[in-house]
Computed example of a mutant assay.
Amino acid sequence: MNTDGAPPLGGWQQTWRLAAAAALGLTVWLQTGVLLRWQALVPGPWFVTGDPLVALGCLTALLWRRRFPRAVALTVAVASTASTLATGAALLALCSVATRRRPAETGAVVPAYVIASQFAAGLYPVGSPPGTLWLLVFPALTAGIAVAVGTAIGARRAEVRSLRDRAESAEREQRARAAQARALERNRIAREMHDVLAHRISLVAMQAGALDHRGDLTAEENRVLIRGIADGSRQALEELRDVLGVLRADPDGPQSPPPSLDGLPGLVADARAAGLDARLTTTVAGGPAGAVGRTCYRVVQEGLTNAAKHAPGTRVDVVLEGAAGDGLHVSVRNSPPAATAARPPASGFGLLGLAERVTLAGGMLDHRPAPGDGYLLTAHLPWPRRDGGTTE
């Protein structure tokens, strides 16, 4: 297991590091042999056979320096006492420990390396130009260089790891924002589709149900219902095309006007033509623009849609009251259904989406059963005055 968080070494990286350590050890070994010859000392059999074998064992141990950094470094440092050819392996082990940037570990390995070098000097008495002090200074200097290089490598690895973590975190955040944007866009499309199509399809389903269950209709009444189904289907397709056009259109290009209070008479007239006894009563002069007007239109549309689904053929009273500065109050009340009929499937999210719309507009929505087994849908919306005042 890699304990220092360093990236795993590839075959080429492992090979050139070991090759560099072997080359450095070979340089020291050859230099020692030359000095022994220069001083008329004959290298013994250990120098020719034992020294290289110990160095080979040290280089082999370095393969596990990532898994057991302290153990390998101390082992190689001690083994280098009996092998000048293992000097490069000892320095590589020391450098590898220093990359972890843990002073306690580095402080334990460096003295072991320096002390081991003193025993190595006794094994091969080649002497040193400045005297015995050089035997202590030179190993300490080389150990310091190895520690400095290892610390720099460790700092670089930590920086790269930090940058990689930041990049991965930014990528995760970007994916999360993209998923959230997709979810919001899906919800917006689903809400628009429900608001536009549910009303028309409910009226068409109610008219089709009347044709199926009423056998006492005259030919003229049948023609009126069939014509209503055809007109409602056509209008549903047109409104669907408009919604898709708005969703796909250039936001800077021309767009269809949004629904407002001006469209309520037509909305009630369509419900009346589909068989609902719908009536609109309003004491509102003019009307709020923007989100409040659109929300009021959607409240009435949802109320008529639900009445057509759950109480076909009943009376529906739509009442609008209020004035600028006092707020806008809208209610949709339907009487109990006159007869039990097959109901079209419902999404169950119409009132949930409507409540979200009303809340975003700063209003309050309420829906509950009305006395006499009817149903009441009410909404209170803010209607700011022209001077900027709002309802308290």
Rank of each mutant, 00 (worst) to 15 (best):
L63Y: 10
P130C: 05
A55P: 12
A112F: 08
A108L: 15
R70L: 14
A152L: 13
L135P: 02
L85N: 03
I153T: 13
A170G: 06
S80D: 03
A116Q: 05
G50E: 03
A98F: 09
G107N: 11
G107L: 09
V54M: 00
W64E: 12
L92I: 05
P111H: 10
F138G: 02
L63D: 00
L163V: 13
I153A: 13
A77D: 09
C58H: 04
I115K: 00
A86K: 08
A140E: 07
G57A: 08
P129F: 02
T81M: 14
A104V: 13
A90L: 07
A146I: 06
A82V: 13
F119W: 13
L92Y: 04
L94Q: 03
E168H: 11
S80T: 10
L63A: 15
R102K: 05
V97I: 14
E159I: 06
S117D: 09
F138K: 13
S162Q: 14
T99F: 00
R157Y: 02
E159F: 02
Q118T: 09
E105K: 03
V54N: 02
R157S: 11
A158I: 00
A86S: 07
A148D: 05
T99D: 06
T132Y: 07
A158K: 06
S96T: 12
V137I: 15
L136F: 13
T49Q: 08
E168Y: 07
A73K: 11
S83H: 01
V78I: 13
G122L: 15
P111M: 02
L141C: 10
V126P: 01
T87M: 10
C95V: 01
Q118P: 04
W134I: 00
F68P: 00
A155E: 07
G131S: 01
A108T: 08
L91S: 04
T81N: 04
S80E: 03
P111G: 07
V149F: 08
A90N: 10
P69F: 03
A77H: 02
L94S: 02
A89I: 03
R70T: 04
T99E: 15
L62Y: 08
T87A: 10
G122T: 05
G107E: 08
L92D: 12
V110T: 13
L92E: 14
A79T: 01
L141R: 05
V109C: 02
T142E: 05
T106W: 05
A167K: 12
V126Y: 04
A93S: 10
A55W: 01
L91C: 06
G150V: 12
A152S: 15
T151L: 11
R100V: 04
S162V: 13
D165C: 04
P129H: 10
A73T: 09
E105A: 13
Q118S: 09
S117A: 14
L163S: 05
Y113T: 06
S96G: 14
E159N: 15
S117C: 13
V149L: 14
L123S: 06
V126C: 09
L123H: 07
E159A: 15
T87H: 06
R100L: 15
T75M: 10
G107P: 05
G150K: 07
R70P: 00
T49L: 15
Q118D: 01
R100H: 04
L94D: 07
L63F: 09
W64D: 14
